[in-house]
């Protein structure tokens, strides 16, 4: 605390600083955990399998000690990220074509919209049917799930403002230059939005695939611990999943800001 207040006295209460350090918010979070602990310990909350947070910490320790957590986390992250990366390549490429070439868009967009209406989770049984209980099945599911937001955001991002295209024409830019200097940068902020959504969806669907299909990774760990009636370890697993999601999203944003500073600033997402 003394450190924080020293910083606060030297630096004017800038927006960035206020955005980063939210002591009240952190306190409320901890307080919430404390209330949970008390409520369970005093029997106020009485569910057979609701552990208090302290037990969850112990469970987390056990998971780490036995190495189960590391293995499961590595598997899930590998699958979710591979599927997502594949979807990124496919989605940005196909989305660019669909967004830039009107005839292609005209003759396929309605098909895509019809396919999009199919709830993605309903594809998990299909994938299990086609690929069995394998990591490949998981990657296919993760990729399919992440593909949609990336594809749709790329398509709409490629709809560059007509005025900017005219600017390119007036300044006599070549077609590749218009694509590279105007259309792609104009679409970047929206593509990044698609990539972020895609990443979180691919994580969710990886977990589902692990719960009903491939017995591996965090998804399997969760159902396994639930069935083995080890709620503390299961809650620890849920906590890890939440943190993994936050960390992945943060890493992606940091990378995007490093790579596309101007574009994200312009879209008001520079942070």
């Amino acid at each position: 605390m003394p450190e924080a207040s020293a910083v606060a006295s030297r630096v004017p209460p800038s927006k960035a600083l206020r955005g980063r350090i939210n002591a009240v918010g952190a306190a409320v979070f901890v307080l919430g955990l404390g209330v949970w602990e008390l409520a369970v310990r005093t029997g106020l909350l009485d569910f057979a399998y609701l552990p208090p947070p302290s037990d969850v910490v112990v469970g987390l320790g056990e998971l780490i000690e036995t190495g189960q957590l590391q293995g499961a986390l590595a598997h899930t992250l590998f699958v979710a990220l591979s599927g997502w990366a594949l979807a990124g390549l496919l989605g940005v490429a196909a989305g660019s074509v669909l967004g830039l070439v009107r005839p292609v868009w005209r003759y396929s967009m309605a098909s895509l919209e019809a396919l999009r209406a199919l709830p993605i989770v309903a594809f998990v049984p299909v994938a299990v049917l086609l690929y069995g209980f394998s990591a490949r099945m998981e990657i296919v599911v993760a990729c399919y799930a992440a593909l949609w937001p990336i594809l749709l955001n790329t398509i709409s991002g490629m709809r560059t403002e007509q005025r900017l295209i005219e600017v390119g024409a007036v300044l006599r830019l070549s077609r590749p230059a218009v694509l590279w200097k105007i259309r792609l940068p104009a679409a970047t902020a929206q593509i990044v939005v698609g990539l972020r959504l895609g990443l979180s969806i691919s994580l969710v669907l990886t977990l589902v695939a692990e719960m009903v299909g491939n017995p591996a990774g965090l998804g399997f760990l969760l159902v396994d611990k639930a069935e083995a009636l080890q709620p503390a370890q299961m809650f620890a697993g849920v906590f890890v999943v939440g943190v993994a999601g936050i960390v992945l999203n943060a890493l992606l944003m940091v990378a995007a800001r490093l790579a596309f500073r101007g574009q994200l600033n312009a879209a008001g997402e520079g942070g």
Partner: peptide
């Protein structure tokens, strides 16, 4: 037949005519 060499248009809506991601 198209934008000619050496002829440049300046548009009224400067907000949409500048690339916001470039300095």
């Amino acid at each position: 037949t198209g934008p000619a060499d050496g002829v440049v248009t300046v548009f009224q809506d400067y907000v949409h005519s500048l690339l916001p991601w470039r300095t």
